[in-house]
Simulated assay, not measured.
Amino acid sequence: MREGERFAVVTGATSGIGRSVALGLARAGLRPILIGRSRERLANTAVAIAAAGQSPILIRADLSSLRETAAAAAEVLDQVPALDVLVNNAGILSPRRTETDEGHETTLAVNHLAPFVLTRALLPALRASGRGRVVQTGSSTSDQASIDPDDLELRRGWRMTRAYARSKLALLMVAIELAAAERDRGVDVNVVHPGLVATDLVRAGGIDQWVWRHILSRMALSPEQGADTLLHAALSPDFAGISGCYLKKRAPVLPNRRALDPGLRARVLAATERLAGAA
């Protein structure tokens, strides 16, 4: 570890937007810490980052498991004294309702609960950097989503797109709460909709995957283009001290009106804390 070295944690960095974000952070002089499920894919990304002049730290963890997510955070804290950037980018779009080994609905676990657990655990290191930044990958699907704090895991009325949109709305609402709590502690928190990006997120099979591969993907941004606003939020001096925003194309925009309701946000945060427990 070199004196003055700066660090950035990135999840979902083995492909798509996350890989482009990790490369962009490395080119900006930060040493990436990559958290992912596949050792082989982590190693492949590490080769690309090494070509950008950085030696990444690799941590294997399945982010559908809150225990493994917490263990990954502990490993980060063991290795770095301070953290400049955390990009929670890992996400899934599941074709059917499943539950993790810990009993959580899988879409919510990966898209919302794991980022919550990871961010909560890494706050001391983010504060220690002087002005740490948390960037969450959101989605415009949250813009019209509804949410029930008493049923975040959609035990009633589960649908693939509904579960995904609700998980991203929960992510956004809790990020706004966290931004307010951390405003005077040296941590900025923002949520970014990267746009329609050509990634391997849609692996549902059937008509959904066919539509994505043959129609929507032709209009999609490249992963590099999708990473642009995330990197802007993570690195730009223009965003120093800017927190609690929902960003599209580098600019703050109004989120779902439900995300502007303090009482509802507080209920979603409380439900998230109950589900995440002590992980």
Rank of each mutant, 00 (worst) to 15 (best):
S142Y: 01
S142N: 00
D143N: 11
D143V: 06
Q144I: 00
Q144S: 13
A145S: 15
A145K: 01
I147Q: 04
I147A: 01
I147T: 02
P149Y: 09
P149M: 09
D150H: 04
D150W: 00
D150K: 00
D151N: 13
L152W: 04
L154T: 04
L154F: 03
L154E: 06
R155F: 10
R155I: 06
R156N: 04
G157P: 00
W158R: 05
W158N: 02
R159Y: 12
R159S: 15
R159I: 04
M160L: 12
M160T: 14
T161H: 09
R162L: 04
A163T: 06
A163W: 05
Y164K: 09
Y164C: 03
Y164L: 08
A165P: 01
A165L: 03
R166E: 03
R166Y: 00
S167I: 03
K168H: 07
L169S: 11
L169G: 06
A170V: 01
A170M: 04
A170T: 10
A170H: 04
L171E: 10
L171K: 10
L171M: 14
L172A: 07
M173V: 10
M173R: 08
V174D: 05
V174A: 05
V174M: 02
A175W: 01
I176Y: 07
I176D: 01
I176F: 12
I176R: 13
I176N: 06
E177T: 08
E177K: 10
A179W: 14
A180K: 15
A181D: 11
E182T: 05
E182V: 01
D184R: 08
D184I: 00
R185I: 03
R185E: 11
G186F: 14
G186T: 08
G186C: 06
G186I: 08
V187H: 14
V187M: 11
V187W: 09
D188P: 03
V189C: 03
V189E: 05
N190K: 10
N190C: 14
V191F: 06
V191P: 08
V191E: 03
V191S: 13
H193P: 02
H193S: 13
H193A: 12
P194G: 13
G195P: 02
G195R: 00
L196V: 14
T199Y: 14
T199E: 05
T199N: 09
T199P: 09
